[in-house]
Design a protein around this nucleic acid. Structure first.
Lengths: 154, 154
DNA sequence: TTCTCATGCAACTCTATATGTTGCGAGGTC
DNA sequence: GACCTCGCAACATATAGAGTTGCATGAGAA
């Protein structure tokens, strides 16, 4: 099953925005991500509704960060995306009459719930600012430039 | 995305087989699972290759359990299914040149790996026999019959 | 006012994958 | 030989993420 990369994508976008003071257009972000501006608007819509980012139309418009990234966790971003499915597996039937299936569901369901809880807990422990800090550490080690173009040239 | 229910399905099949001494045909199992015989053969193929079950052709043929269910864990079954994808999310790009994406991948990847490891560990802790025992506990509480038909009549 | 820029949104296509279905051949029992 | 059951290939269906196109709307520039 193809894996959902929206969370990965939107974080990528946020970190790039954090490196630039002014607004960035969907078009520029799409170029950096090798994708389509509409895809950018799509994944950013939820974040805009929650006030994490702001979008401006017209000349000089685009996307800007509208919050303190240290106060926003990956869990918040995940929620803003609409809480997509975390696990690729699930029970065949949710409320089965068959006792065999109930036994299977109980065991698997408990395991699945545990894994989901772990993911959400970890997401809640990581702020977007922490990711940005990690990026700057990597940048210092490599001595590159934070500009959009140079990082994606290769 | 629709969640993969093969693990749930094959466990359901195994537990039903454990309740019956003789071989069960794909057709009978499919009826019990409200699905198609070919689907049954498909998910059982991997288990047959590993010797967990045996299939017999012709009159009186069908599927039989060919191992000690106490020695087989959900992890073994999962492996026999071909180790399908566990998580519905993943990184946008696996080996990105962009340092921003590297930082995102590092954080998310670690979390994803943790969750996968947890799932596999839990699978390894549960034997099929344990599921069967749980089923019998439920059966005693409800006082029903273990026959295929009665359990699925409703 | 008019032109250009950029978002917002709907509708469509494309692709991958689990699942469902049909048909036929191989092998086994009666 | 007649019948049963698995094995397998081929095709159909459904769903969801992703990509694409077109147009309307609002904002700034000339």
């Amino acid at each position: 099953m193809r894996r959902d990369s929206r969370l990965s994508g939107v974080l990528h976008v946020l970190l790039h925005m954090a490196e630039q003071p002014g607004p960035i257009t969907s078009e520029a972000l799409a170029r950096a991500m090798s994708t389509n501006p509409v895809v950018i608007r799509r994944i950013m819509g939820g974040l805009r509704d929650r006030g994490y980012v702001h979008s401006e139309k017209g000349h000089g418009g685009g996307w800007t960060i509208a919050c303190d990234l240290a106060a926003v966790t990956l869990r918040d971003i995940y929620d803003a995306l609409g809480k997509p499915e975390l696990l690729a597996m699930g029970n065949r039937t949710e409320a089965p009459g068959c006792l065999v299936e109930q036994a299977v569901n109980a065991a698997l369901g408990e395991t699945f719930d545990e894994a989901e809880a772990l993911l959400l807990r970890r997401f809640g422990e990581i702020s977007v600012a922490a990711l940005s800090a990690d990026f700057h550490t990597r940048l210092a080690e490599r001595g590159g430039s934070p500009a959009l173009e140079t990082n994606h040239a290769a």
